[in-house]
Each structure stands twice: as C-alpha cells, then as structure tokens.
C-alpha cells in the first residue's frame, strides 16, 4: 500500500462522518499513521465536531408545548366560537381557557375576544370574589386600569364557550394549571371549583 499521495479533505471528512467504504477507510487509517499533516487535519475536524456536538437545545417552559394546540385553535377559530351555556362544574376550566387565551394570544387580545362569563356567575362576580391580585393573574392584566376595563366590559355579558376547541386532555391540563394558581392564592376564598 502506497502513501505517496494524500487523501483529499472531502475524504477525510467522510472518514470522520463514517461514510467511507471499508477498503478506503482502512487505507486512509493506515495513511494517518504515517502522515502528520492529514492526521492533524482529522484531529482538528474531530475537535470541531466534538464541540458542536456538545451544544444542546435550550429548555423552554413546558407550557409552551402544553397549550400549543389550544393557542393555534384559538388563533384559527376565533370567529367560530359558539355560544354555549356552561355547566357550573366547568367554571374553572372556562376561566383557565380564558387565562390561557389571554396569556398566549400572539398579540394583545381585543376585548371582544374576551367576552366570557359563567352561566351561573358573571365574570365580574368571579373577579371580585378572587380579589384583585388573582384577578390580575387570571386576566393577565398589568395595570389596574386594564383590569378595571376588563371587569367593566364583562359586566352583564353572557356566556361563550371558549372550551369548544379543547380536547379533554387539554381541558384537564388547563384545569390543573388554574387550580394550582387558585390553591396557592385563594386559601379561604369562597369560590367553589366544581371540576
């Protein structure tokens, strides 16, 4: 076997990439034993690729994935929500749907997209009984004016079902999420969450 010429850099890349034919691979490995130039090149390739391989995709908040389908439907189906009277037991899920919709809307939602009220309780009452802090959290409002305008807006409106587009699994996620918030922030609250 002769070593009087060097494999080209493409072949050395193929070697590192593991796509060389076996015979050629063996020839090149033999060559590397006696050629410092080629072996230095291979080492630098390996060092480069090792470093690139250590790079990891960043972790992002799991909620992004959990509510992705919901957000997409909310975005796509906005105009088609049908008016449905909610059973009292669905109140938490409905609020959760509102929360998610507001939090994950691609742009700040228009107020007319937010006309959600419980069949057995107005959102106004709901917000009042939750207290301002939780009201902020649930409605994702940043200022008292914003919260106030939402409350005002909600007053006297009727119920729309934001849950229509949700699968049972998503509903369950939403309800769990909202219940976590409620448990941590409303001990002693008089709200009964029927879910």
């Amino acid at each position: 076997m002769k070593h009087d010429y060097h494999p080209d850099s493409d072949e050395l890349i193929d070697l590192v990439d593991g796509v060389l034919e076996e015979e050629r691979r063996r020839w090149i490995l033999e060559h590397l034993k006696v050629c410092s130039q080629c072996s230095a090149y291979v080492r630098s390739l390996e060092a480069t690729l090792d470093m690139l391989a250590r790079d990891e995709v960043p972790q992002i908040e799991p909620a992004f994935f959990t509510y992705l389908a919901t957000r997409i439907r909310a975005q796509v189906q906005k105009p088609t929500w049908r008016r449905v009277l909610l059973a009292p037991g669905l109140a938490a899920a409905a609020i959760a749907a509102l929360l998610v919709f507001v939090l994950y809307a691609p742009s700040p939602p228009e107020l007319d997209q937010l006309d959600l009220i419980m069949a057995d309780m107005t959102t106004q009452e709901l917000i009042e009984s939750m207290g301002d802090d939780l009201g902020y959290e649930v409605l994702a409002s940043d200022t008292s004016e914003e919260l106030f305008s939402m409350e005002e807006y909600f007053q006297g409106e009727t119920a729309y079902d934001l849950l229509e587009g949700l699968s049972p699994l998503e509903r369950q996620h939403l309800v769990e999420e909202i219940e976590k918030i409620l448990q941590s922030e409303t001990s002693g609250s008089n709200i009964h969450w029927g879910c």
Binding site: S9, I13, S44, L45, T48, L49
Partner: peptide, 21 residues
Amino acid sequence: SYHFAIKHLRQLVSGGENLEA
C-alpha cells in the same frame, strides 16, 4: 454542501490554517 459546511466550521475553530492536499 455538508463538506463545505464542515470545512467552514473547522476553519472557524482553527483560525484559518488550511490543508489542501
């Protein structure tokens, strides 16, 4: 394209020293 990319990346790491056989 893959070979070009690898060569390019290697060059970034090793600061431009080159081997052309």
